[in-house]
Amino acid sequence: MSEKKHWLYREENRIKLWLIQLLILALALLPEFFMHHHPHFEDQGMSIDASWGFFTWYGFLTCAAMVAAAKILGIFLKRKDTYYDE
C-alpha cells in the first residue's frame, strides 16, 4: 500500500505523544495541591492512603512490580505456542 503512514506512527510525532501523556499526568496530579484526602484506616494508625500523591505512586509502582513479576515468572512458564500441538 502506498498510503502515507498514519500520524500516530510517524517517528517525528513520538515525542509529541509522550509530551501529551506527561501533560495529562501533570493535570491529574494538580488537585493534590488543593485537596485533602481522608484516611480509610485512621483507627489502625495507618494514614498512608491520605498522604500526598499516594494514588499516583502506588498505581505506578504496583503496576511496575506486576510487569516485573510477570517477566520473571515468564522465564519459567513461557513455552512456544505450539507446545501442546501434536
Binding site: L25, A28, W57, C63
Partner: peptide, 12 residues
C-alpha cells in the same frame, strides 16, 4: 484518586 491511580498505571 481513581483517575490518578489509572493514569499512572497507564504511564507504567
Amino acid at each position: 484518586t481513581q483517575l490518578q491511580l489509572l493514569l499512572f498505571a497507564g504511564f507504567a
